[in-house]
Computed example of a mutant assay.
Amino acid sequence: MNRTSQGARDTAPSHDGRPLSEDRYRRGTRRTGAEPLAASWEPTGHRRRKRRRGVKGLIAGYGWRIYAIPVLLVLTALVVLDTAAPSTIAGGETNPADPGTGASAPPTTTGPPEATEKPPVEIDLKNFPTAQLPDGPKFSEQGAGTFAVIPGTTQPAGTGGKLYRYAIAIEDGVEPADYNGDREAFARTVDGILADPRSWIGTGQVTMQRVDAEPVDFTVSLTTTSTTHAMCGFQIQFESSCWHNLSKRVVINTARWVRGGKVYGSDLSAYRTYAINHEVGHVLKNPHEGCKENGKAAPVMMQQSFGVANDYVAQLNSVDSSNRYAVEANGLVCTPNPFPVAPQ
């Protein structure tokens, strides 16, 4: 058998007269068994299209998916807004994370807070030295011993009984800061206390009227501590106010007016109400009293500037001959009370 050399096969003519070496790479022709595979870089039936630009190009390239993109963007924005907005409860009211404030919960913070709350400390009314003057602003300690009446009058307050005419004055030398720089405001405070139906007019036995000229039954006087000590005495070594019968003055100690009393805590307004009602009670010839029932409101005539525990107040009074037997040491402890008449 004669074998044709490789070279002869490569140069043999094809049926159309071209060499096999060319014919076997022509598209659509059949490869002979001895011929290698031929790969085309341009598949049959496809032509390279010219790439479109702009919106038409995007549509041609991505089809229906191009319409889904803006829809997805809108849905994402709605989800973000719904997450950030507070939820609501029935009736359309906001359901905040912090009930009662209407505010959402604050973001979580790290590290210790820069400032923390300081709630008031509960005072042991029985054993704590409640006669001590509370901490607070400075007050006038030295005055001239003379007083200036604040002009002004009121209509009678009360439903009957004896009419008491009173004036209001401030000692010369009392610093304006002790009455917030407003003499008329100090006078209005006193007027408001004495015209309160829970004060002495509420008994139906007295009527109160402010005047600024004689005759007067008593004068409510804001007084420096040194003058207070001179008029009221200082046997009990704690600041207090008093009724000075000889001068017909309700002596209100600046130390107490500015700082109040321990048993009243931070309620300065309530303490001032107590101080006025207590001393005016002496004008009406009421003596000191002790706690009557454990846990109940103290009588306004109890020495609440010192405390509301009978044992403690009795101990303080042991050095004061005028009050030595005013309170019995019987273990009773009351709660602070600034009024002589129980609210109706």
Results as ranks from 00 to 15, higher is better:
43 P>L: 03
153 T>K: 00
112 P>R: 09
191 D>I: 10
204 G>T: 11
195 A>I: 06
235 Q>C: 06
1 M>V: 07
165 R>I: 09
114 E>A: 13
147 F>V: 04
315 Q>Y: 05
250 V>E: 03
10 D>P: 01
136 G>A: 02
330 N>F: 00
125 L>P: 01
182 D>I: 13
212 D>A: 06
137 P>N: 06
43 P>T: 01
89 I>S: 10
337 N>R: 08
75 L>S: 13
317 N>T: 04
103 A>R: 11
6 Q>I: 15
160 G>M: 00
113 P>R: 10
246 L>M: 13
88 T>L: 12
279 E>K: 04
263 V>A: 08
230 A>Y: 01
202 G>W: 06
261 G>Q: 08
95 N>M: 01
88 T>F: 09
22 E>D: 15
58 L>M: 12
49 R>Q: 12
217 D>Q: 03
269 S>D: 08
157 A>C: 04
318 S>L: 09
321 S>M: 09
132 Q>P: 02
73 L>A: 15
272 R>C: 01
79 V>K: 14
149 V>F: 04
48 R>N: 14
52 R>S: 09
274 Y>M: 11
145 G>V: 05
15 H>S: 07
20 L>Y: 14
310 N>S: 11
238 F>R: 08
94 T>R: 07
333 V>M: 08
143 G>E: 05
131 A>V: 03
340 P>E: 02
260 G>Y: 12
215 P>C: 06
322 S>K: 12
307 G>T: 12
341 V>D: 00
128 F>V: 03
96 P>A: 08
331 G>K: 00
135 D>F: 00
314 A>Q: 10
306 F>P: 00
32 T>L: 10
169 A>I: 00
131 A>Y: 00
208 M>F: 04
116 T>S: 15
32 T>N: 13
264 Y>S: 02
21 S>H: 11
52 R>F: 09
99 P>N: 11
160 G>F: 00
287 P>G: 12
138 K>Q: 13
77 A>M: 15
286 N>G: 08
282 H>G: 05
156 P>S: 02
148 A>F: 10
249 R>N: 06
334 C>Y: 05
152 G>K: 07
51 R>K: 11
91 G>H: 11
80 V>K: 10
13 P>S: 13
110 T>A: 14
270 A>Q: 09
303 Q>C: 09
320 D>I: 12
307 G>R: 06
245 N>V: 06
21 S>F: 13
31 R>D: 14
342 A>P: 07
128 F>T: 02
343 P>V: 07
27 R>N: 15
69 I>V: 15
21 S>I: 12
331 G>W: 04
309 A>I: 12
46 H>N: 06
95 N>F: 00
113 P>F: 10
317 N>C: 11
327 V>I: 13
69 I>P: 14
153 T>A: 08
107 P>Y: 04
164 Y>E: 02
13 P>M: 13
294 N>V: 05
186 F>S: 00
120 P>I: 01
90 A>C: 11
335 T>Q: 06
121 V>T: 13
311 D>W: 02
287 P>L: 12
93 E>D: 11
264 Y>K: 03
118 K>P: 03
